[in-house]
């Protein structure tokens, strides 16, 4: 992993149609390119398995639950806790009135889920990013970009050729500082 600390060569293939791009990724995977390291950029979401790339499962909903739990406790603290901090009787009703505590707690729980889900999305998708990293602007115009990071010239040439053979409209190299692969 730490062999080439300085930079890594990425082969970028830009495809005009999805079948060709899909085929290219599967062929690359067959010839030993890591499924985890390849990246595919698209303008619309494709079903899982359309490309040979492997994506990580999303754990966002677990953080949503965490947010919900946090919201619940916050709601309890506000609705029941603050009433106990400064008890003022109103309307002959109890200081901690559970039905109203329920309403407030419910809203805080939902707010917690909403905020944590958003934060989890940003965290897991590594957004917002200051620099777009390796990006192909024609993706938003309907192209599909396949990015293959390669160690060593030999592999790079192989990848280049495979992309071209699969029908890429454009293939070029881009060097990026070597960080973790998935941060591309």
């Amino acid at each position: 992993m730490s062999a080439s600390r300085s930079s890594v060569t990425n082969i970028v293939g830009v495809f005009g149609n999805v079948e060709a791009a899909s085929q290219a990724t599967y062929q690359l995977a067959h010839s030993g390119f890591s499924r985890d390291n390849m990246t595919v950029m698209t303008a619309e979401p494709y079903p899982l398995g359309a490309f040979a790339t492997r994506t990580k499962k999303s754990f966002i909903h677990y953080l949503s639950l965490l947010g919900g739990a946090g919201g619940l406790l916050t709601g309890l603290a506000f609705a029941a806790g603050t009433a106990l901090l400064y008890p003022l009787p109103t309307g002959g009703k109890p200081i901690v009135a559970w039905p109203t505590v329920g309403v407030i707690t419910y809203e805080f729980t939902m707010l917690g889920i909403i905020i944590f889900t958003t934060l989890a999305f940003l965290f897991f998708a590594r957004l917002p990013r200051r620099q777009p990293g390796l990006y192909v602007p024609s993706v938003t115009a309907g192209k599909i970009a396949v990015v293959v990071p390669c160690r060593g010239e030999e592999r790079a040439v192989v990848a280049e050729r495979m992309l071209q053979v699969s029908g890429a409209e454009e293939v070029y190299r881009r060097d990026t500082p070597a960080r973790r692969w998935d941060e591309l």
């Binding site: 950029m41 990580k56 957004l127 620099q131």
Partner: peptide
């Protein structure tokens, strides 16, 4: 936010919207 449209980003977005549409209804 520096969105690139990688498969991973789409996957996270789908999960996020999945949570949102379930939560926003009772809200």
């Amino acid at each position: 936010l520096g969105w690139r449209g990688t498969e991973q980003e789409w996957r996270h977005l789908h999960r996020t919207l999945g949570v949102f549409m379930v939560v926003i209804l009772p809200v």
